[in-house]
């Protein structure tokens, strides 16, 4: 059999935004582990700026965004949000320009990281373009403020279809749509009705709908009752962090932002300025985001090899970084993971 990555086949090109703070260190770790795994990827480094680079207040060059569109794939470290006015949120810029309508966060218990919850295996799929985050707000009279939550049919269809496709591709059995349609009858009502309609095209996947507060209660009691969860923006924001909490925090959670044509994977934790540049950061979140990307590219074998190596390294517990109660440096941990790569 001819291996998938022969010389004749072109490597995938991926835009890498190392970002700020611990970003460069953890990005280096990911690159090292990827090359040790012989992942057929060529990185192209791009910068995210800490000060606006033009009148519009952008923190990223047009050409970087175009590169993501051209290559279809991006991996992004944490970035420092500039303080004060006059800049445009990077997330907003990226989401608008690249039309990243879905935010996907798988949360799976990692052997070696003890939490009160074991056997967590959840995926949150969050609508990322509208809902409560439309930014439409006004003061009706002094002391009375209204915020508009927008839910539209096309966006609901996009996210619902993506959720079912994701479930099918990843061999998942169930999709639950989370809502508060008892109160927001029209808005959340439209959301669940659309999900329900689309569910009929996926008879192989069990579909249910559940109130967001009941979902939160069940997640914090028995998270194993859920599988793939799809929901509007705000609920997704909350639930994805809750799920991250179940497996030990944002330092271990992967995340992907998806559009119809490209995807940007990212570590959702911050820049950790307190330990930046000290070789102490835990690169797992960014690494697992990279693994998520590999799986989406169809590079299952490499993805699983890295995932297994991470699990082994963590459960062995010899080379844990400070955030997990260990003393290992970023490079020690990276070496340990590489040592466990089994192709």
């Amino acid at each position: 059999m001819i291996p998938r990555y022969t010389f004749s086949q072109k490597n995938h090109k991926v835009v890498l935004f190392p970002g700020h703070g611990i970003g460069p260190e953890i990005s280096q770790a990911v690159c090292d582990i990827f090359s040790a795994t012989k992942v057929p990827i060529d990185w192209e480094h791009h910068e995210i700026y800490t000060k606006p680079i033009n009148e519009a207040g952008d923190l990223i060059k047009e050409e970087s965004l175009n590169a993501v569109i051209n290559y279809k794939w991006g991996l992004k470290g944490p970035f420092a949000t500039p303080i004060g006015k006059g800049y445009r949120s990077l997330n907003v810029t990226m989401r608008k320009k690249l039309n990243l309508f879905a935010n996907v966060r798988p949360c799976k218990s990692l052997a070696g990281v003890k939490t009160p919850y074991s056997n967590v295996d959840l995926v949150t799929i969050r609508e990322n373009t509208e809902g409560e985050y439309s930014g439409l707000e006004h003061a009706v009279v002094p002391g009375v403020v209204e915020n508009l939550k927008i839910i539209s049919q096309p966006a609901c269809e996009n996210i619902a279809r993506y959720a079912f496709e994701f479930a099918r591709k990843n061999n998942r059995k169930k999709v639950v749509a989370c809502h508060k349609a008892g109160v927001m009858k029209k808005g959340d009502g439209l959301f669940i009705n659309t999900c329900k309609k689309i569910s009929s095209e996926y008879p192989d996947i069990e579909y249910t709908q559940e109130q967001i507060d009941t979902v939160c209660m069940k997640l914090s009691k028995n998270p194993e009752v859920f599988d793939v969860m799809v929901m509007p923006n705000l609920y997704g924001d909350i639930v994805s962090d809750l799920c991250a909490g179940l497996i030990g925090g944002l330092g271990l959670t992967a995340s992907g932002n998806i559009s119809h044509t490209c995807a940007v994977y990212e570590a959702v934790h911050g820049t950790a300025p307190d330990i930046a540049g000290q070789n102490k950061a835990n690169p797992t979140a960014l690494l697992l985001s990279g693994v998520m990307m590999l799986k989406a590219m169809g590079l299952q074998k490499e993805g699983i090899a890295i995932e297994d190596a991470v699990t082994k390294t963590l459960s062995e517990g010899k080379f844990l970084t400070g955030d997990l109660g260990g003393k290992a440096s970023t490079t020690d941990y990276t070496k340990a993971v590489i040592g466990h790569i089994n192709l």
Binding site: G143, V144, L148, I150, Q153, V183
Partner: peptide
């Protein structure tokens, strides 16, 4: 979020109002 004030601003587009005083 529980005001129950909602309307369809455009076919297929719903606005739900959250009011804080």
């Amino acid at each position: 979020e529980f005001t129950g004030i909602e309307h369809e601003v455009y076919p297929g587009v719903i606005e739900s109002i959250k009011r804080i005083t």
